[in-house]
Amino acid sequence: MAAPIDTVLFDLDDTLCRYRRSAADVLEIAFERAGVGSVFEPGAYYDRYREYLERATRPVDLHEQCFGDLAVESGYDRADGLAVARAFREERDQRNVEALPGATATVEALAEEYTLGLVTNGLSAMQRQKLEATGLEDAFETTVYAGEDAAPKPDPEPFDLALDELGSVAERTVYVGNSLSADIAGARAAGLASAWLPAETAPVEPEPSPDYVLESLADLRSPPWR
């Protein structure tokens, strides 16, 4: 018989919160706020940033690297790209974040019965702004910023760190996240059960396979592992 769950860990981005506007819309605002004009084409950002993300091995501001390089390649000063990156980050993480429907109520309900923690990929300065914007900054007993405090998900290290800080064990913990490759794979690597919150265009047969599939965060009001 499996041990009963007493700890729930959450992902943050697209699990508990989301951006209101697209990156392209925020980038246009960032150009204006930085006062440097469109120093590169917004479309160039998407492909390039994914390259930086895949190569990242330490906690750095990838937008500053990416936007600085794009500005130079477009004939502008690197300082112009850095100014856009700072404006982009502030606009995106302070003014453009909202909690997903039911996130706050679900977390509050679970806190009455379970020990709660957060394991999120991203720099602490960026992720804290999102937590503050959604009112979730005091909702968790521990928060691990994977990529800064530990290796990024799907490495098991950030999950292990969260469990150590909470005094919990993997066999009694479930991780809730939206990404198969980062969240579900990472939870499996760390020996945790996983609850998947899929996007609208989710695969019929997800791989890796989660232990539980949620239709919405509201499903957690009556946890499927009971």
Rank of each mutant, 00 (worst) to 15 (best):
D6R: 11
V8P: 02
V8D: 02
V8W: 05
V8R: 04
V8Q: 05
L9K: 03
L9M: 10
L9C: 10
F10T: 02
D11M: 03
D11H: 04
D11Y: 05
D13A: 07
D13L: 03
D14V: 05
T15Q: 03
T15V: 02
T15C: 05
L16M: 06
C17N: 11
C17R: 10
Y19W: 13
R20T: 13
R20P: 05
R21I: 01
S22F: 07
S22E: 08
A23M: 09
A23L: 08
A23H: 09
A24M: 09
V26M: 00
L27W: 00
L27C: 02
E28S: 10
E28M: 09
F31D: 02
F31A: 01
E32K: 14
R33N: 11
R33W: 11
R33I: 10
A34C: 09
V36N: 04
G37L: 12
S38Q: 15
V39R: 01
V39Y: 00
F40P: 02
P42H: 06
P42C: 07
G43H: 11
A44R: 15
A44Q: 15
A44C: 12
Y45D: 00
Y46D: 13
D47M: 12
D47S: 15
R48W: 05
R48I: 05
Y49K: 02
R50F: 10
E51N: 10
E51Y: 08
E54F: 10
E54D: 12
R55K: 13
R55A: 15
A56T: 10
A56H: 02
A56W: 05
T57P: 03
R58N: 09
R58F: 12
P59N: 10
V60M: 11
D61N: 14
D61G: 02
L62T: 03
H63A: 04
E64Y: 05
C66H: 01
C66W: 02
C66Y: 01
G68P: 06
G68R: 04
D69I: 09
L70R: 04
A71Q: 04
A71W: 02
V72Q: 14
E73D: 14
E73G: 13
S74E: 10
G75K: 12
G75Q: 11
G75V: 11
Y76S: 12
D77V: 09
A79D: 15
D80L: 06
G81M: 07
A83F: 05
V84M: 04
V84G: 00
V84N: 04
V84Y: 01
V84E: 00
A85D: 07
A85T: 07
A85W: 01
A87R: 00
A87I: 04
F88R: 00
F88E: 01
R89P: 00
E90L: 14
